[in-house]
Computed example of a mutant assay.
Amino acid sequence: MTAAETTETTETTAVATETPADVLLPAQRVPAESRGRTTVTDRAATRITCELAGTLPGVLAVAEHDGLPWTRTTAARVDGDQVRVRLFITVGYPAPLRSTARRIREELTGELAQMTGLRASEIDVIVTHLTTEDEGAAR
């Protein structure tokens, strides 16, 4: 093999390892927001809401969907970039209900925006049970 053939082989290998994104000029790259769309479904928003609410201080339980049509369950409805939430929770006694509900709304609004990119237009907090920490752990 001659020196010219070795150089040619090395150059061919270097070109073959380039990816299509490296070959495109910066002006030809498509911005991330133009490559597609991310959609958050009602079901996903509901599950995220339940998980987030369950981690908040003072919330002992969240009424998640159990399949029975007559039960009260947490639900989220997504409309464009907004989400409306009805949250059914059990709160620890003796929590001040108004300030607890306000704190839950504020924290959920921020967390939902961060995780999903959705803006909470309405968060209804419905306290269905008020119980001690011991009773809440038994549920």
Rank of each mutant, 00 (worst) to 15 (best):
82 Q>D: 15
114 Q>G: 06
32 A>F: 02
21 A>S: 09
30 V>N: 05
74 T>D: 06
20 P>N: 02
12 T>S: 14
134 D>I: 07
133 E>D: 12
103 R>P: 04
134 D>M: 10
6 T>H: 10
60 L>R: 09
122 E>K: 08
84 R>T: 14
123 I>L: 13
46 T>F: 03
119 R>Q: 14
24 L>I: 00
129 H>A: 15
47 R>N: 13
102 R>K: 14
81 D>G: 15
79 D>H: 13
45 A>M: 07
117 G>N: 05
109 T>R: 12
44 A>W: 03
81 D>Q: 15
116 T>D: 02
128 T>N: 14
113 A>H: 13
117 G>L: 08
101 A>E: 06
7 T>A: 13
20 P>V: 02
126 I>T: 15
10 T>D: 10
113 A>N: 11
70 W>R: 13
78 V>Q: 12
9 T>Q: 11
108 L>G: 08
8 E>N: 11
101 A>M: 09
98 R>K: 14
29 R>E: 15
121 S>K: 11
14 A>C: 01
119 R>Y: 06
138 A>M: 10
129 H>Q: 15
135 E>P: 01
107 E>C: 10
26 P>E: 01
87 L>W: 04
69 P>W: 10
6 T>C: 03
97 L>C: 08
11 E>Q: 09
97 L>I: 14
78 V>T: 07
34 S>G: 01
61 A>K: 12
138 A>L: 09
74 T>M: 03
